[in-house]
């Protein structure tokens, strides 16, 4: 187990390092235009730009710049924003509550719908109910997030408010620590926005996995032993069938924690995703790189956690 852990950890670190390298090349070296000019602003004199260049170390050879960048990263230093001179990491941390609320909530919503629907569908495989759920799931998968968001906004915010039922707010984020009820009211539509695609995808996955498990020999054995259907379903078939679902949840959660641009934008949530968009719009290179790196960090950590959990559950993974 220790060997597996070490190997996996090393592999995760290597991936993370490769990602930082990719980000450095894509955004730092290959950027057209001069970061120093960007930082100094359009009214800076040539002297000022030169000063900024020296201060940012942009006059150094590439490998020195890279070593400095890596050195800073190793100290969790993502640099300063070009726009407001604030620490990038501090800005991201401040934006995390909205992103975390959105990610955890929407995953919870889609799992609560998708897992029962998937199991139901698998048990009635080939029947009308299964076909109906399958079509609904495929439709959910096919909805682009921004279409869901726009339509929800129009129907459940605009029309409902116009009709005299201002059930949902226009958008924005209220921290749960300030007012849990308002937090919930503000989060429901954003959760729904993200959950439509997730529910569709996970219903398909849960159905497929459950169907496969129900066709296994040991499930037939359990039935042959005369166990009740409920016991076969929930004791024998369900736990292994949910393993692939949980694996994907881990990975998707890692992705969502990096920020969800479209949902945050439509609902005015000041999360990491909207920070990334703002940074892009103002050409704030350190913040762009910071948000990409943080998001990548979450994905790699999520991968790592999922692998370790699987190894704990299944010896074949850690020994194979």
């Amino acid at each position: 187990m220790l060997r597996f852990l070490l190997r996996r950890l090393l592999f995760g670190l290597l991936t993370l390092w490769l990602i930082t390298l990719a980000v450095f090349i894509l955004f730092f070296l290959a950027t057209p235009g001069d970061p120093a000019l960007n930082f100094a602003g359009e009214f800076a004199t040539a002297d000022q730009v030169a000063m900024v260049r020296a201060r940012l170390g942009l006059d150094q050879p590439v490998y020195v710049q890279y070593l400095r960048y890596m050195w800073a990263l190793l100290h969790f230093d993502l640099g300063m924003s070009f726009v407001n001179q604030e620490e990038v990491l501090a800005t991201i941390v401040r934006r995390m509550p909205a992103t975390i609320s959105l990610a955890l909530g929407s995953v919870a919503v889609w799992l609560m719908i998708a897992i029962p629907a998937g199991i139901f569908s698998a048990r009635r495989s080939g029947q009308a109910a299964d076909r109906l759920i399958t079509i609904a799931a495929l439709a959910g998968m096919s909805f682009p997030t921004f279409v869901v968001g726009t339509l929800l906004f129009y129907v459940l915010f605009f029309q409902l408010t116009n009709a005299g039922f201002p059930l949902f707010p226009l958008g924005g984020f209220v921290p749960i620590t300030r007012d849990p009820l308002e937090w919930l009211r503000h989060m429901i539509l954003p959760w729904a926005t993200l959950a439509v695609v997730g529910t569709g995808t996970y219903t398909r996955i849960a159905r497929g996995s459950m169907l496969e498990t129900l066709n296994q020999d040991y499930v037939r054995t359990a039935r042959a032993k005369g166990l009740g259907e409920q016991r076969v379903m929930y004791k024998h078939a369900l736990p292994p069938a949910m393993t692939p679902v949980m694996t994907l949840v881990g990975l998707d959660l890692g992705g969502l924690l990096g920020g969800t641009i479209i949902t945050e934008r439509i609902w005015g949530l000041n999360g990491v995703g909207s920070l990334a968009v703002q940074a892009v719009e103002s050409g704030d290179l350190p913040v762009i790189m910071g948000t990409v790196l943080i998001a990548a960090f979450f994905v790699v950590v999520a991968n790592l956690c999922v692998d370790i959990l699987q190894a704990v559950r299944d010896p074949r993974v850690r020994l194979g």
Binding site: T291, A295, V299
Partner: peptide, 12 residues
């Protein structure tokens, strides 16, 4: 796969 798709795409 480690790079966040939409954020990186937007940034690129």
């Amino acid at each position: 796969l480690g790079l966040p798709l939409l954020i990186t795409a937007v940034a690129l």
